[in-house]
Amino acid sequence: MEYVSPEGLRLDGRRPMEMRQLRAELGAVSRADGSAVFEMGNTKVIAAVYGPREVQNRSQQINDKALIRCEYTMANFSTGDRMRKPKGDRRSTEISLVIRQTMEACIMTHLMPRSQIDIFVQVLQADGGTRSACINAATLALADAGIPMCDLVTSCSAGYLNSTPLLDLNYVEDSARGPDVTVGILPKLDKVTLLQMDAKLPMDIFENVMQLATEGCKAVANYIREVLLENTKQLENRRGV
C-alpha cells in the first residue's frame, strides 16, 4: 500500500514531517486534584491525577519517596469496532507501566515521602499514538495538580514507511506494521525518558526517525507550555490578582 503519495502527501493529507493538530484543556475532572484532556488529531485522551495523598496500601509505602501509580484504560467506544473486554489485558498493563516509569522520571518523588500519587488515563478516541497522547495528558494533569516536576515530559511517535520517516503516525499508518518509534523526552534538560520500538531498523535510519520524533516532542512541549501559561493567567484573572 502507498502511504506517501508521489506528491509527498500522506493518507490524511499531511506532509511526512507534519504533526496532527494538538488541543489541550485543563481541569476536565472537577473531583480530581489535577486533570487534562489532550488531543492529537482524532486521538483523544483524558487524564486525572489524585494526590499526593496518604498511601492506601501500607505495605506499598516507600519511606523516602512518593509511590506513583498509573492506570491506563481504553473506553470500549474508543475504537472503530466496539471493544468487548477492555480492562486488564496485556497491552494496557504494559502501557500503564510505561506511563508510570516515564512520569516517575520527572516527578520529584523525594519531596513527598510516604505518600502516593495516582494517575488515571483513559483513551476516549483511539487513532494511533495513544501512548504518546497519554503521556502528554498525564504531564498536563500533573502540572495542573501542582506536583513538583523537574521538567515536563512530552512524547511523540515517528515511523518509517515507503522509505520515508513519518512524524506522528495515525491508526492506518500504525496498522501498516512498519517500525514505530515512541520517544519521551525532558525537553529543557535534553534527556530521554522513554524510547520504544517494536521492529528492526538500520542504525542510520533509526537515528533519523528518532531525531524526527524528538523534534515532535519539542513541538508538543512548546504547545503544552503555552497551554499551562494561558491557564495560569486565566486563573489569576479570575482570582483578580
Partner: peptide, 16 residues
C-alpha cells in the same frame, strides 16, 4: 530545585 550536574536552578511548578 537546584540541578547538581550543571548547578542551575529550574522551576518545578507552574506559576509565578
Amino acid at each position: 530545585y537546584l540541578s547538581p550536574h550543571n548547578n542551575t536552578v529550574y522551576a518545578a511548578l507552574t506559576g509565578r
